[in-house]
Computed example of a mutant assay.
Amino acid sequence: MAVLTWLLIPLFAAIGAAIWGSWASRDRTTGDVAELAGYARFREVMERSDSGSGPA
C-alpha cells in the first residue's frame, strides 16, 4: 500500500501542474476591450468638460 501512495503523489502533482498551467495560460483579453472602451469614453468626456477655472 505504501508503494501505491508513493506512485500517486507524482501523479497528483502532474495533474495539478497541468491544471495550473492551463489556468495560467488562459486568454485574458476579453475584459480589456470593455475597459479600454470605457477609458476612451472617459477621456472624451474629460476633454469636452469645462475645467471650472473660467469666470463664475
Rank of each mutant, 00 (worst) to 15 (best):
I9L: 14
A34Y: 04
S53R: 11
V3M: 02
I19N: 03
S51V: 09
E35H: 04
L7R: 12
R28I: 08
E44L: 09
A56W: 10
L36N: 13
W6V: 10
E44Y: 03
E47V: 06
S53T: 12
R43E: 11
V45P: 00
E44A: 14
V3P: 00
E35T: 11
A56D: 14
L8E: 06
G16L: 07
T29M: 03
G54H: 07
A14Q: 01
A40Y: 08
S53H: 08
V3W: 01
I15R: 02
A34N: 07
F42E: 14
F42R: 14
R48Q: 15
V45M: 10
A34I: 05
S51Q: 07
A13Q: 03
I9R: 06
G31T: 06
Y39W: 13
I19H: 06
A14G: 06
G16I: 01
I15E: 01
D27E: 09
G31F: 01
G54Q: 08
D50T: 05
M46R: 15
G31Y: 01
S49K: 13
L4T: 07
S22N: 12
A17R: 02
G38I: 01
G21L: 12
A17S: 13
F12E: 01
S53I: 06
S22Q: 13
E47I: 03
P10Y: 00
D50I: 02
W6K: 15
G52C: 02
A40F: 08
R41C: 00
S49W: 03
D27H: 10
R48D: 15
G52T: 01
E47L: 12
L8C: 05
S25D: 11
S22V: 10
I15P: 00
A40I: 11
L4G: 06
F42D: 13
A34W: 02
A17H: 04
E35S: 08
L8Q: 06
V3K: 15
R28T: 14
R43Y: 02
M1C: 05
V33S: 12
G31K: 09
A34M: 04
V33H: 10
A37R: 15
E44S: 12
R41K: 14
A13M: 11
Y39L: 15
R28G: 10
A13C: 09
E47C: 00
W23G: 04
S51R: 03
R43S: 05
W6H: 13
D32S: 07
G21A: 14
R41N: 11
T5P: 00
F42Y: 15
S49D: 08
G38Q: 13
L7M: 14
A2Y: 07
A40D: 14
A37D: 11
R43N: 08
A34H: 09
P55T: 10
R26H: 08
V33R: 15
R28E: 15
L36W: 08
A17C: 10
A24D: 13
T5D: 05
F12A: 08
G31R: 09
E47Y: 03
T29P: 00
P10S: 01
I19G: 11
S53G: 05
R43T: 07
T5A: 10
W6S: 13
T5Y: 03
A17G: 15
S25C: 03
W6R: 15
I9K: 03
T5E: 05
